[in-house]
Structures are given as structure tokens and as C-alpha cells.
Design a protein around this nucleic acid. Sequence first.
DNA 1: GACCTGCTGCGGTATG
Length: 852
Amino acid sequence: MPLRVDGAEITLAEAGRLALPELFAEWFAAQGWQPRRHQLELLGLASRGLSTLLIAPTGGGKTLAGFLPSLVELTEARDHDQNARVGPHTLYISPLKALAVDVARNLERPVSEMKLPITLETRTGDTSASKRARQRLKPPDILMTTPEQLALLLALPDASRLFKGLRAIVLDELHAIVASKRGVLLSLGLARLARLAPEARRVGLSATVADPDGLRAWLMPQTPEQPVLAELIMGDAGANANISILASQERVPWAGHSARYAMPEIYKAICEAKMTLVFVNTRSQAEMIFQDLWTINELNLPIALHHGSLDVSQRRKVEAAMASGQLRAVVCTSTLDLGIDWGEVDLVINVGAPKGASRLMQRIGRASHRLDDPSRALLVPANRFEVLECQAAQGAAAEGQQDSEPPVGGKLDVLAQHVLGSACGEPFDATVLFEEVRSAYPYRGLTRDNFDSVLSFVATGGYALKSYDRYAKLRQLPDGRWRLAHPKIGQQYRLNVGTIVEAAMLKVKLVSARGLGDRRLVGRGGKILGEVEEWFVEQLAPGDTFVFASQVLRFEGLDDLDALVTRAYKEDPKIPSYNGGKFPLSTYLAERVREILSKPDGWRSLPDQVRDWLGVQDYKSLVPTAAEMLVETFPRGARWYLVCYPFEGRLAHQTLGMLLTRRLERLRARPLGFVANEYALAVWGTRDLSLMISSGKLSLDFLFDEDMLGDDLDSWLAESNLMKRTFRTCAIIAGLIERRHPGKEKTGRQVTFSSDLIYDVLREHEPTHVLLRAAWDDAATGLLDIRRLGDMLKRVKGRLTYRALDAVSPLAVPVMLEIGRERIYGEAHEALFAEAAESLIDEAMQINSSVH
DNA sequence: GACCTGCTGCGGTATG
């Protein structure tokens, strides 16, 4: 893209000389670099005090671009009141502590090489208390920190003094942060900064996203009238990624997610590359694949493991080994999605469903540092449906389509935390705070009513909890402003700041043991290997074995918050299981999968086995077009099954399943249970569903009508454990329940217990409590995916295609195989037989049976 | 005997 100055086209080098002070231009030249276009553009906008969103792929000097204007300003003392300034000139916010440290280290080089008169420091939870205290008195020019630390800094009594001189705020990995409650908290911090330092410009650094305007608005203080957008700079796109799908010689499984069939082929790809990242979707799968690779690792390649449940020290070791080029492969989860570029990765393997085009592109981007090198990636589908999903993702990548998550909207529990934090500094005026909060993009639509109920919750606990002293956190001064009820509450706030709420975890401690049975003596001291979720350990009996931290361990017993284990040499261990989040199949990829299905001409590019599968489906039942939804009924054993294919992801299907069974119950169809996967939903019962439909007793249009969302959702949800879990998170974030208290850590069980208790009290006495509403909002957008379900029901209205079949169809096999594998709603007490896979597949693929 | 799903991230301060 040519650059123009006063109408004349100029080269980048010339532009660099124009915009960059000589000192900087020389330094660039000494590196053998030319300033990139986006770096110069950002300099230009920053010099006019404009806030900017910079979207660029990794490896393009994006971070340096973000800091360049600050370095120049600080060097040239364009900043007039520099001597008067007490606080930092530039604030850098990263979602990862390690990234803040890494960026600081990278920035120190130009600063020291050019001998710039600039101080820069990091401040995270790892920073020593003494350094933090010193930083308050004498802050650096550039402070690099996390969203949580910003909240803490803003809660200091001298926050306004500290930030008055702030000139720039750099927000790294913005696309990732806005999609979480951490981003919501950060947006409130930014709104405060906008009041303390109205002149500070913002720089957002982001990967490519689906909707840049959403991020541009997120960056800016909003006014009620119309959205205010930051400037936008698009960095040059990198070379297109070279993505292939594993063409396996093996049989691709009908269901399951292990991808074990492909292990030799994955190993071969690792052997042929210099350095490979193997991304998987879950921690337990990372453990499993790592084990499998080791057993076939004939060449003894150095292969490592990296996921979020491993101890930090273990992870740092792997990272260091990677950076110094000692490893040939790392099996990892999304821990390595973001941040630092570790080493010279030249191949990315993604095992299992990609789930989303943007997520996949982010991962693949890890495979090239240099902009002009195409990244190489290999997708390994774990089952037949995933072949379709991989192809959808491959197509999306080729077209540069994005499906990144939009910013999370204003949450009431996060607001409650912020309101409390606001009172920690100086007393605040409610109306001033309300206006400030509304200038944060996620809260632009917040009503005064909602704000007031949050404020009253923080002040008193709300109507139902008013009589308990401990929930009264604010007092009103005679002039109407609000202050903390007690200084102790400020300390409580600081200890519990942040929006990350973890499941109850136990540390896994490797100890020594002697003897057998009752005489077994187990040591108490040992090395911490990492953490597993409490509920998993609760299922273990002493003597059980499981794989963790890439070794087989024997569970010995509990010691307070530790699970004691010893080394074991048994075969068939249990795999540790974590109850983590679930990434749903993105709507965008779902659409593409439906497109692929609906165009038989394109099936040629699919592997033979997958093509045959779809071919038989087409012959025996039907392969739906992109717009319609296929519903099939068929008998099997003593039951009748109804299978539908919305392709909307497991979460939405679970909710649909729950609602459908309730509706079928009312229609006297006697449903017994349902099971869902990412693509389909199966419901079954004892009555002849085909007959009910053909005789008009059961109308599919009625069954799938959108009004079902109003049906029983509320009553069902209120009773469910899911809602209690969600409430626990909101209650912790809002400060109703403390996770940490001076002097004592709470166990997960204690927290859960008090949370359940409060939940029941509120449900009975104050069903409209802010936190119940917050929890409902989270459940609706998260675990239940109600919006998506609603959109789907709208989409398929009047477009249901129905087939009454004699027997199971090929497309139904994967979801049918899920039966017996998981706990089934509605049929908890009935013993379920798992479907015998072979007979099910034979029946589905038989083509001489009669067809309706 | 084959089969097994479910991510990541942060976190205090004043005083002795």
C-alpha cells in the first residue's frame, strides 16, 4: 500500500525518516529493519492524540507499534508537564502475567540500546510487596500490568494523583480480553481512567476479528447518543496458511474424540517437521495423546506436555526448552494459544474439532514468526462429523473468514465488584459513578434502576440479606456520597479482586509410601505435580490409578487440600477428568458444515469412508439442505427414537433436549430420555412416534415451535445444579462470598456450601435479587445457549423435513453411540444398555432394507 | 477388548 505525504507517494524508508526521530530511525536501520506501515500510521494518529485499534497478525511488530509513540513522546519530552507528572505516562495491560514480563523484556532492548531516558516496570501478582509499595511512590514511565492490577491500583486512595498524568493506555490481545468477564472489569477500569486522565489515548492490539467496529467502540468512552469509534489500522495480512486435513489410511471412527487411530500418522508428521505444536481440546486428551506418542516414539524425540493444570514451574521448564530449540513437539491445550512466541514452530497439528475458524487461525498463527512465511497446519478429525467440521474450517481459513467472539455485555456481578472497589479510594457520588459506568461500552445500555439495585446490594446485601451485618459494605455520608462501612472491607475487596472463579481444586502431591493395605504408610511431604478438580478425586478410592503430569499415579488418600499420590506401574489407568468450560461449535462453522452437506457435488473432496456414509444416508433417508432441518423417527429394540440435526453445538442441543422431552411428556408421548452431541439430538420413548406423527397426534411444527423457550425453562433451571454453579460464580465475583480471607483459605466445599445456602434463601425471599438475575443472564448466554437455540428455532420454522424410517440412519449413528456413554436426563434410574457399535453401524449402512 | 472430551486466565497491604 503506497504512502502519501502532501499528495506525493513516498517509500516506507522515507516515511520512517519523516515520522521517526533520527535516533529511532538509526536504531531501526541498525537492526536491518524498516519501519512497517502500521507502525508509522499509528505514530501519526497518536501524535494527534487519537485512540486506535491496530489489527495485525503475530510477527508483524505489533507490540512495538503500540509503544513507539510513547517512546517517542517520552524521549522528545513532547509531554509538557513531564516533570510535574507523578504517575506513569503509559499503561500497558496484558491478559497474561508472563506476556507482560516478556513484553517488558523486549522493550528494554530498544530503550537501553538507544539510551532513552525511560523507566519501565511490570506489576503483577508476582511482584514483591516492597516493589509494589515503591511503585506507588515512584512509578515508572511505562507500567506493564494486568486487568486485575489496574482494578487494585484504581482502588487506592491516591488513584487520581497516580493517573492524572497518564497519556497512553496500550491494551494487548484485546480480541481475547473483551470476550470475557475480565474484559468487562477492564472496561470499568478504563471508564475510571477516562475521568482521571481524559487526555490519555488508547491503543488496542488485536488479532483479526469478525467485527472490528465492536472493538473500536469498546476502546472508546461511549456517549448515550451514538457509538464512538476508535481509529482503525489494519496491518498487512501475512501469507496464507497452508492447511491440510489428514487423509488417514485408517478407519475414521464413527464417534468419540480420542483420535487414537491417527497416532502413527501424527508421529510421522512430527518426525518430518522441525518443531511441532500439537493442539488438543482438553487437558485429559493432552495427557492421553502425550502417552500414546511416547509409546510409539521409536526415535526418542524430545516431546513435551503443556496444559493449564500442570504446575507453573513445570510449564516454565517446557517453555524454556521450547524457546531454546530443545524440543521437537509439545502437546498442549489452549495455554499456548496466546502470547509469547516460543521457539521456531514450523508445524501446527490440531487434533479434534477446530470449533471455530478464528480459534484455529490463532493457533495456526503460532507456526510462523515471519510474516511472509506461510504457516503449515495439519487438521486431524477424530470422527466422521469432525471431518466435515475440519473441512468447514479449512474453507473459512482460505477465505479469511472470522468468527471471533463478540465483547461480553455489562454484567451486574462485575459491576458490584467495581462499585465496592470505587468506595475503597475516595467516597463516591452515585450519579457521577452511574454516568461513568455508562461510558464503558459493555454498560452503555445500563438503566439507572439496575445500577441502583446493584448499589443497594453492595451497600446492604439487598432486601433479603439486609439484617445480616456482614453484607452491609457501604455507608452514606451526610452529603449523600458513599464510603466503605469499615476499612476491613477494603482489605477484603483487595484480596478477592478479579473475575476468574475456579472450580474447587486439589493439589496433586507426589509422596512416598511403604507397605500394603491397612499397614500402608504414606508420607506427607513431596513434590506438587499440579492440580485436579475435587470432584474427580472424590470418585477415586485409595489404590486407583490415573494418568497425570505424564505419568501413571496411584491415589493414596487426602491430606487437607492435597491429593497424595505415588508412582504406579499399572496399565489401564483412569484419565484425570476436568469439568472445564466447553467451547461450542461456532455458529459460523455450523453453517459451513450444513453447506458442505447440502452440496453432494462437493463430496468428492471428502475421504471415501465419509462420502460413502453420506451416500447411504442420502439413499436411506435424506441429506438435508442448508436451510432445512431433518427430523427422523425409527424403532429400535423396544423403543422409538426421534433424531434431529440442528448443528448448533452441544449446549444448545442439551437445552433443546430438555425442553423437547417436557413437551413430549405433555403430549403423552412418554419420552424416556435424550442425548445430544455437537451436531444432533436424539430423544426416545416407548410410544410409536412415527404413528403419532402420521396420525396427526403429534405435530412436529408444534413440537419445534419457538414458544417452547417460554415453557418450562425458568422452573427447570431454578431447580438445576447448573444454576447453583452459575450462582456461585456470580456470588464470588460480586463479593457476597469470599474465596480468600485474611489468614485462611477456604476450601471449595466450604464456598459451595455457603453459596447453595444463600441461593435457596434468595430464591425464596427475593427472587428478583441482582445476583439471581446475573446468574440467569450467565446461564442463558453461556451454558444453555438460549439465544442460539432461539435463532435456530426461528431458522427452521416451516422448514422441517421429516422421514419415518424402519431403522437407524447413517447420520444418526454417532449420536446413538453417545447413549450409554453419559448420564442421561430423565432416565437416571433405569439401567441403560450401551449400544453395540458394530450392529448399529451394520444396520445403518445396510442398503437392501426397504425404504419409506 | 475397545472405548473413554470438555480451555484459559488473576489475585493485598501496612506494620513490626
